[in-house]
Each structure stands twice: as C-alpha cells, then as structure tokens.
C-alpha cells in the first residue's frame, strides 16, 4: 500500500514538473498578472466558438441577402430584411403585413407566452405551496412532478399526440362515458388549449422546484411571528410569502418567458407542424421554416427575425430584473 502511495506521489510530482515547464515559460513571456487569462482560455474559447461567434454570425446574416449560405456569397443589404419584416399597415392585422406569416407567428407566440407564463406560474406556485405543506411523501411527489422535465420534448409531443388522437386514449374515455369524439388537433381552440396544457405539464416540475426551494428558505419563525400578530391566512400569503418569494418568482418568470418565446419542438410535434392551419405556428417555427424548410431559403430574413426576438427578450428580461430590484 505504502509502495503504491509513493509510486503515485512520484507520478504526480513528475506530471506537475512537466506541466510547470510551459506555464513557467508563458508566465515569463506575458507576466504573472496576465496568467488568469491563460487559465480562463479553454472556457473563453468554448464560449467564443459556440456562443459569441454564432451570435455575431447571426447579426451578420441579418444584414445580408440572397439564398446562399456561404457568407462571402451573400450581398450586404443593410436593413432590408428588417424593413421587410416590419412593413405593416396594421400590426394587429397580420395579413396587412408584407411578411404575414411572421406576424401570425408573433401573434400566436404572444398569446402562447401570456397564457403559458400565467398558467405555469399559477400551477407551479400552487403545487409548490401544497408540497411545502405536506410532510409525508414530499420527496415522492417532487419526483413525480419533476419526471416529465427529464423527457425529450419530441417524446412528450409524440406521447400526447397519441393520447389526443381521434382514436387515442382520451377519446376512447370520452366515448366510454357516452360523449362524442373530439378531433382535438383539428380544432383551433382545443389544439391551442392542449399545446399550452402539455407545455405546462412538461415543465411545471422544474419551476415548482425553484419555487419550493424559495418557500423552504423562508424562516419558520417569521410565520410564527405572523401567527402571533394574528395575521389572516390570505394576508400571510400576500404580505409575507409572496414578497419573500419574489427573488425566486423573478427567476422563474425570466426563465419561463425566455423558454416560452422559444417554444418549438414539443408544439411542432404535437400539432404536426403548427396546425390546424397556422393556429399553432410560433416564432421559432417561422424562423426554422424560413431558413431551412422552404424552397427558397431566406437565411437573412430568418436571422433578422431571430435578432428581433433576441432584442425583445433582452428588453423584457431587463424590465423584469429592474422591477425585481425595485421590489427588493
């Protein structure tokens, strides 16, 4: 044992002395104060190549035209792509816009975000409040609610499509209890209802967990002080629980909004491509189809739409963070 230990020690010492040589050399060339950059380099390279470079390219593409994918073959066209996206007689009426599909997607996405964010917040908050109260089986229920988060969005889409199919599980249940079959995915209301419902089912476990962590971080004696102060339950919730949960709720809101605006895969699979018609065509689907799924591949236009979406998200996030800071 001691022999193995001493062998390991020698090996480590040998490795360290080998690594030391190039680092000593680098330090001599660039100076000790710049050494942290050397250690950060691997991360910076990964971030640069996989995050910052694509963002830069995206912005660049947004200002170029044509259908070629190679950048050098693409002519610079200034703000033309943005002008095309935003030329509208009436922004509330998509068909008056030059790029009507974009505005239909925007409108669908706005509704989806509003309903999903409010629905998800309410459901996650209520679930977390219940889980916080129960003492028995909390771990079990937490796992049950979290489980869908582990699934692939495509799997979620497929499973629910099977559930909601004309001959699916839900319809056979409806028939069993003497009701008419509903062709959910061909009905505008029902298809939208299920897209939002499935999204909430799919991701609520994640947000519930964040809110539950916040609830459990509120000291118990604050609730006891409130009980001695004779605070009614509703007032405890609105005046103590909610304000003290605010930092977690802001995190949830920001994450939720970003993810909702980016809705694509599970909705695309569930609605078989955004149907019925364009009822469930969302912004990312528009970007995807404009760039990769149409006969004429308009990378520039799709990039412009992506940039616009990114800017809107950034502004909304900043507003939320600002409000949260003010609330503190």
């Amino acid at each position: 044992m001691t022999q193995v230990k001493s062998l390991l020690g020698t090996l480590v010492g040998w490795l360290v002395s080998i690594i030391e040589i190039p680092f000593n050399l680098i330090e001599r060339v660039i100076g000790g104060r710049r050494m942290p950059w050397v250690f950060m380099l691997p991360n910076l390279v990964i971030f640069g190549v996989f995050t910052f470079l694509p963002i830069g390219l995206l912005v660049f593409y947004a200002f170029t035209g044509g259908t070629e994918i190679v950048l050098t073959d693409r002519p610079f066209i200034g703000l033309d792509n943005f002008t095309r996206l935003f030329s509208c007689e009436n922004f509330l009426s998509p068909y008056s816009c030059r790029e009507s599909m974009f505005w239909i997607a925007v409108q669908n996405t706005v509704w989806y975000v509003l309903l999903t964010v409010s629905g998800m917040l309410a459901v996650s908050l209520i679930t977390a409040l219940v889980l916080d109260k129960i003492t028995k089986g909390r771990g079990f229920f937490r796992a049950v609610f979290f489980y869908p988060v582990l699934l692939s969005p495509v799997v979620v889409g497929l499973v629910w499509r099977w559930f909601l199919d004309t001959n699916g599980l839900l319809n056979s249940l409806l028939v069993d209890i003497g009701m008419e079959r509903i062709i959910f995915m061909l009905d505008v209301f029902w298809s939208r209802f299920w897209v939002i419902g499935v999204s909430i089912w799919f991701q609520m476990g994640f947000y519930t967990l964040i809110i539950l962590a916040g609830l459990q971080a509120i000291p118990r004696d604050i609730y006891e002080a409130a009980a001695i102060d004779g605070t009614p339950r509703w007032r405890v919730f609105t005046n103590i629980t909610l304000p003290m949960l605010m930092p977690n709720l802001v995190v949830v809101l920001v994450l939720l909004m970003i993810r909702s605006v980016q809705v694509f895969d599970e909705a695309y699979v569930l609605t078989n491509g955004g149907g019925p018609g364009t009822a469930n065509t969302f912004l990312v689907q528009y970007i995807y189809e404009t760039a990769f799924a149409s006969d004429i591949r308009l990378y520039g236009l799709a990039s412009a739409a992506s940039v616009a979406m990114g800017v809107v998200l950034l502004i909304l996030t900043l507003i939320q963070l600002g409000l949260a800071k003010k609330a503190e």
Binding site: I222, E224, A225, I228, G230, T231, I240
Partner: peptide
C-alpha cells in the same frame, strides 16, 4: 390560536419581516 391569547413574543432570531 396564538392571536387570541393576547400575548406578544420576541424571538431569538427577531423574526422581523
């Protein structure tokens, strides 16, 4: 209930809001 007992309590952690 605590409130009905007309008592006040000062906690070790102060328990301020």
């Amino acid at each position: 209930s605590p409130a009905q007992r007309r008592i006040a309590m000062v906690f070790q952690s102060y328990a301020l809001y």
